[in-house]
Amino acid sequence: MLKDLFVPNAKPRPSVFFTMVACQVVFLLLLWLFYPLQLFPTLGEVLASFKDLVTTQGLIQELWASLTTALGALAIATVLALVIAYLTALPFFRPIAYAASKMRYLTLTGLTFFMALMVSSGHQVKLSVLIFGATVYLVTGMTSVILTTTQEEMDHARTLGMSEWRSFYEVVVLGKLDEMLEVVRQNFAIIWTMITLVETLYQSEGGIGLLLYKQNRYLHLAGVVAIQLVILATGALQDYLFEFLRRMFFPYSDLSVAK
């Protein structure tokens, strides 16, 4: 039973597996509690500062504000990126997708300055930077999903008498929606990186990024760790949610994956 945990590809029983995970977590916490590192804040300090952040600095509200902004940006970026990626079917639009995916290399700070010149309110700058940043990453992932389409798949649709458009819709659009959702899930993390950065550049809007920035500036290490852990937990929750959505809408999607 226990040795299952050290056999490649073994499938330990769920109860065993979750007990193991719980033990690992507790072990880490104990290690943290009893053997504090020199610079790293202790567990007690982090917890205290978490409590302080929640009660006096509105951590939860800031988190919520950032999260909704992130989700809004992600939704718009997903639609944009899907359209751009699907348009690569038409040779005319291929350069756009190519260019869009290369825009990943634009730096955020320069971009923010540029956006600030174009739109008026701080919120809009924030949103447009996030949308832009997420779109270029999503386009990259999505076009590479589209490129996995095989000759056989397309031929199959064509032999059923489907037109070129219909074949594309059936094989590439419908057939790969699940993988597109996976691309979105993977790139959500990028939005978190960007949002914390953009919020420090655009402080009028607040947000968890600004909170993090303040903790950094006043060298509140415990606060920094607490906020990072909160973001980490939110991210993990998101991943889980996306996974759940995928299972619900695309039950076929991991049927052929090795278990």
Binding site: E152, E153, D155, H156, A157, R158, T159, L160, G161, M162, E170, V171, L174, G175, L177, D178, F250, Y252
Partner: peptide, 17 residues
């Protein structure tokens, strides 16, 4: 033209979704 001739390919593709 594609679609005029039915063709069952060697690896029997179906729509996996």
């Amino acid at each position: 033209c594609p679609g005029d001739v039915g063709f069952v390919q060697q690896r029997y593709p179906l729509f996996n979704h």
